[in-house]
Amino acid sequence: MKRLSWFNVTSLTLGFAFLYLPMVLLIIYSFNASKLVTVWAGFSTKWYGTLFQNEAFLDAAWVTLKVAVISSTFATVLGTMAAYVLVRSGRFWGRTLFSGMIYAPLVMPEVITGLSLLLLFISIGLDRGVMTIVLAHTTFSMCFVSVVVSSRLISFDRSLEEAALDLGCSAFDAFRLVTLPIIAPAVISGWLLAFTLSLDDLVIASFVSGPSSTTLPIKIWSAVRLGVSPEINALSTIMIGIVTVGVITASLVSKRNSLRMQREEQAAERPA
């Protein structure tokens, strides 16, 4: 077995400390009784109390959640279609443009995407609100979904689809009954990625949201521009907590599944 050298131990320790210390401090200070960052005035959960009484935050959270669920669902459908087209459709007219439009939003500065979408919505006279945010989020997150799904499709054994066709499926049935169930984990992670991107987005939402549709990041943004706020610390802690629990659960579940799979495969090869 390999042993870590001192250099590696040090770089890993410092590296992960750098990655995690800011978040840990944020969490600690969310339980500070004092409003000031400088003074530790004892443990308190009062900021969580005031957070849950803050109607504006709760409203924004609701809008954000709504936008995230709708846009990530649309993005998953469109992104999966796009991935299928990219991986399976071979050559068609305008394929280069199509793949360009899939990959470009991944590296596009958000300010440009936001600006261009806003100008589009204005020029077609679409009122800014939840609808426009959903459209914007669907557009950029479908590209992320399609990258995730297409990398799974590339490694997908095509003979499975051919077997389904051979056994009498139409192309659509083959996708519904064979391809989709097998690539489902990638589609689900695509959805989760789209959901997180939507929850997280500040810049694009700032451009395309209307006065009645403030999302949580916009709300947080206007609060933190004025400096540190204990309520935001509390909110951040909740969000970090949810993400951490989610990611750890997901990785434990997938690790358990792959271990079980391995065990069963080994058991199957042993003569009974």
Partner: peptide, 17 residues
């Protein structure tokens, strides 16, 4: 893990530091 955590919050954490 930080990928899935809000970008805005991660930047904001440094304000207090």
């Amino acid at each position: 893990l930080p990928f899935w955590t809000s970008f805005l919050i991660r930047v904001y954490a440094w304000v207090g530091i």
